[in-house]
Amino acid sequence: MSKVDTSKQKAFLIDMTKCTGCRGCQVACKQWNQLEAEKTEFFSGEGYQNPPAMSEYTFTRIKFRDYQKNGQNEFAFYKEMCMHCEDPACASVCPVGAFEKTAEGPVVYKADRCIGCRFCMIACPFGVPKYEWSKGLPLVKKCTGCYERVVEGLQPACATACPTAITYGNRDEMIKIAEERLAKHPDKYIHKVYGKEEAGGTSVIYLTSLPFDELGFKPVTLRPLPGYTWQALRMVPAAFLTVGGGLSALSWITHRKDRLKKEREEEAATAGEPKEDK
């Protein structure tokens, strides 16, 4: 995909060791985006987790982990949202280019273009894009990265609401801070800056003290996903020309035989020779 100018690019640094699971972010997101509340009952997941998943009404969600490890309680919180990939799979597969990686970082969605094929949902390695299942002519919904705020120089709504865990700023800077924290508290963190390389790098970067899989992170490839399809797609013109050209040549040859035969027949006929039957 086209390389974006990374100098302006912003990113979220979400330090899960600092997340208190207060869910201010979840509510702020709903407020800024004016998303409907979901009807829930009791809790749908461990701890106080609700709603059950991200959805057309929920662009970000705090996932709770409530379990014991070596006899010690673990009560951990993990913020799910669009990762705003550097080279987003959603954007690469969309037939109408409805997704776009902006120079500021957010991967934005142009609803007026979308035809609703849901390929983006299949493609996203993080399961982010959601669909308006209740609508007759549904569109895709996902975290906007608060693009409108960011271009105005504000921070995203969730980052603004967060008391502790989210730092928002230049991506290089965020990675630097993350690495400094790892260096300063090597015993506190899992030694990994998640999102630095995942899916080819993302604009949401995580630090945590619990193994990523215990928090419910999906394993993802480090390669930018669009590359996987592009390696096949880039052969399209060649394949077209090969097959088209090959078949043209082939038929020219095969038909030539016919034509020659026919010409011979015709010549013979005009020469008054008896006509061959078969």
């Binding site: 995909m1 690469s92 597969v93 969309c94 037939p95 109408v96 280019g97 409805a98 273009r113 979308c114 035809i115 609703g116 094929c117 849901r118 390929f119 669909y131 308006e132 609508k135 002519l137 549904p138 569109l139 895709v140 669009p226 399809t229 592009w230 096949a232 797609l233 399209v236």
Partner: peptide, 29 residues
Amino acid sequence: GLLLDLGQPHKGWHVMRYWNLHSPMFEVS
């Protein structure tokens, strides 16, 4: 079948308007 499945079938023609050469879906469409 595709038109039924599409969320925005009335915009199906957008494929021809907004080209995304990187999309296998574009290619297939």
